[in-house]
Simulated assay, not measured.
Amino acid sequence: MARELTPGAGIILAAPEGEILFEKNATRQFIPASTIKVFTALTALKYLGENFHFTTDFLLDKHLNLKIRGQGDPLLTSREIRTVSTHIKKILQKNHISHIQQIMVDGSAFKKGIVIPGTGGSKNPYDAPVGALSANFNTISFKTTGPKSGGDAPPAAGSATPWISAEKETPLVPFAREIIAGAGMKSGRIPLAHGTQALYAGHLFTWFLEKEGIKTEKTITMAEVNAGDRLMFAWRSPYDLRQVVAKLLYYSNNFMANQLFLTLALKQEGAPATLEKGIKVAMAHAASLGIKDLFIEEGSGLSRQNRISPRSMLRILQAFKPHHGLMRYEKNEYYKTGTLQGVRTRCGYFQNRQGELYPFVIMVNQENKGYEKIKKKLQKIVREWKIKG
């Protein structure tokens, strides 16, 4: 069988009890692409725990400035911001406060200026920057209204800007419009620029607070929390870590993966979170699994410098088996795919009629080569495999 398959592919398939049913180039290191997200998810589940919830702190200083301190929540969206704003209103009213001064945003839990290896500074959402305080995946989704115009050109400079939000629950605040104007696009989802993540979140909070009847000075600045600031409350995300991981794996969201990677750094190694601290946590976890050939630069699979062997990836899958239901499922297969230029990878579990799981890894690091033929061969092995008594 091995001669029939892509010569440079890395492949491994195991029985439910762990017996190796097939392997090829199983100890060679390959670029894992997005399949490394399974390891990031597993590491988060180990160190943070299934019941972990992200939190965001809201404080008032002595001048009645509202301070918002982020701690990496990847799912702080307009829906949550609306809910939080309603809660802030109730707290302020209870304290007979109807007007606050500035909105001050604190993203210092993550080191300033983190650039994820493999991102290219494009207008594609997968290049969205990370940030301790982030909103809507650090992207802006918009479209154009009004009379249709030919071509794909954006409105001319100085003309009216008929952009509206492409998300029902997200307002297109002036801060966002300025960013859109510089993008040169009629519609789409664009990433925020580095350094604007927390500010954008602050502008959204200002908009929703104003809607709740809380007056502000409409000034958003960067400022760290001080010892004398009074904690109003800590927002607890409604999503536990299993739900976060399920969304991460289903959508293969690079932003979410690296938010988790940096949160691991924050919780295990202390603030400010850095990629180096995240790597330290990841490598310690890999060592505990008996993995010695992992090289990792970030947690999403964007970096082409990430390396791991199929055999080591199998160890990860064996450890992830209790969480296999968090992966995509289709036609008796739980799986995660990975794609970069010249890279196609897939890992997961084939499920037989008895519900038993056969972990597998396919890594193809060759231009114009896929893995469908390999997958079919492995599935045939699973169908024909007989448990030896």
Score class of each variant (00 low, 15 high):
138 N>S: 10
368 N>M: 15
260 L>R: 03
82 R>E: 08
338 G>T: 04
244 V>Y: 01
352 N>W: 04
247 K>A: 14
74 P>Q: 05
369 K>H: 10
223 A>G: 03
289 L>G: 03
244 V>C: 08
24 K>N: 06
384 E>G: 15
315 R>H: 15
247 K>L: 13
282 A>E: 10
176 A>D: 04
227 A>Q: 12
180 I>N: 08
268 Q>M: 15
71 Q>A: 03
72 G>A: 14
82 R>V: 10
167 E>N: 14
183 A>R: 03
300 S>V: 12
139 T>E: 03
58 F>K: 08
115 V>M: 01
125 P>I: 12
223 A>F: 04
212 E>V: 02
112 K>R: 13
351 Q>A: 14
263 T>M: 02
345 T>K: 11
141 S>N: 04
146 G>W: 13
231 L>N: 09
220 I>F: 13
298 E>C: 07
175 F>P: 01
175 F>R: 11
348 G>M: 09
180 I>V: 11
355 G>A: 02
278 G>R: 07
9 A>M: 07
66 L>Y: 00
359 P>I: 11
16 P>T: 08
244 V>R: 00
322 P>M: 01
19 E>L: 01
318 Q>L: 14
141 S>L: 07
254 N>E: 06
129 P>D: 09
333 E>G: 05
297 E>D: 11
334 Y>A: 08
160 A>D: 15
93 Q>N: 05
299 G>M: 02
289 L>Y: 08
193 A>L: 15
200 Y>K: 13
177 R>A: 11
383 R>E: 14
172 L>W: 12
285 H>R: 10
249 L>W: 04
184 G>C: 11
153 A>F: 14
57 D>I: 05
13 L>T: 02
99 H>Y: 13
194 H>N: 13
384 E>Q: 15
